[in-house]
Amino acid sequence: MDKLEAKESACLSLSSSRIGGMRKKLIAGNWKMNQTPSQAVVLADALKKTVSGKEAAEIVVCPPYTALIPVRDALKGSSIHLGAQDLHWEDQGAFTGKISADMLLDAGCTHVIIGHSEQRTYFHETDATVNKKLIKALAGGLVPIFCIGETLEERDGGRAFDVVKKQLEGGFAGMKDAGHTVLAYEPVWAIGTGRNATPEQAQEMHAFIRKTIASLFSAAVADGMRILYGGSMKPDNAAGLLAQPDIDGGLIGGAALKADSFYGIVKAAG
């Protein structure tokens, strides 16, 4: 898949983001720093064999950079989209260790995760750098999966909604249109801990996020934007979370590393 094909695939993803006036669910697997290229191909092959192409949810997988092209090739002919875990806001230059939007498009990516809590916590990601990355991704034709969420300290301190609002305002600063951004609410205290927000807690925050998007852009933009839940979603709790009116899918971590558990979440989205 070349850059033009990747952009066309991203456009197809966007055009099918609503079904019968309703937001289409999206299940994205974030493989994080797991899976060598050979291991990633095995997982991609297993997913390809499991997915029928008639699922109610859109499916995206985000392998490490070294596995993007092998996974792209393994998924060829399937309905599964390819995403990356980050990008830089510059097109090229002396930015050792970084990757550009053009590189991702050339590798066949249609989506890219931006502002993940682990990037914020360990690698000094800020609302300002998230903003630059969002602008670059949208300009390049990639679909950003823009992550937001509070820590346990912030939630227990009664600041969860203020923190999330600030992240949204900072990430979308100066942007007249949210474009075709997908949001992912990831309560940091529920990532990789086995602890997760109740469906009611998650819905409360998702509804707040949608209201905030309406205030930043418009009610129409807010109504059309998909908001994923990203805090330890698994096959056994996915149905309850995905049944909530403002939860439009999941950004899946650990459960995305096994084809059967990941597909269990995809089925729950149906």
Rank of each mutant, 00 (worst) to 15 (best):
A139L: 07
T129G: 05
T129P: 02
P144K: 13
P144L: 09
K133S: 11
K98I: 06
E118F: 06
V130N: 12
G140A: 11
N131E: 12
H116C: 11
D106W: 08
F123L: 01
S100Y: 04
I99T: 15
M103N: 03
N131I: 08
H111L: 07
T110S: 15
V130K: 10
P144V: 13
D127V: 07
K133G: 00
L105D: 02
A128S: 14
I145A: 04
S117Y: 06
K98P: 13
E125P: 11
A137W: 01
A101K: 03
K133C: 00
H111S: 00
M103H: 05
K133E: 12
I114D: 05
G97K: 14
V112T: 03
H116P: 10
G140W: 01
D127A: 10
H111N: 08
E125G: 13
D106M: 14
L105A: 03
A128R: 13
I113L: 05
I135F: 00
T129Y: 01
G108T: 15
E118S: 04
K132P: 00
Y122I: 08
L104S: 10
H116A: 15
L138Q: 11
H111R: 02
G108M: 13
G97C: 14
I99R: 10
C109V: 14
D102L: 03
I99Q: 05
G97T: 15
G115M: 07
K98A: 13
K133R: 15
H116F: 12
A137P: 02
E118W: 06
F123A: 04
K98N: 12
V112A: 11
Q119G: 15
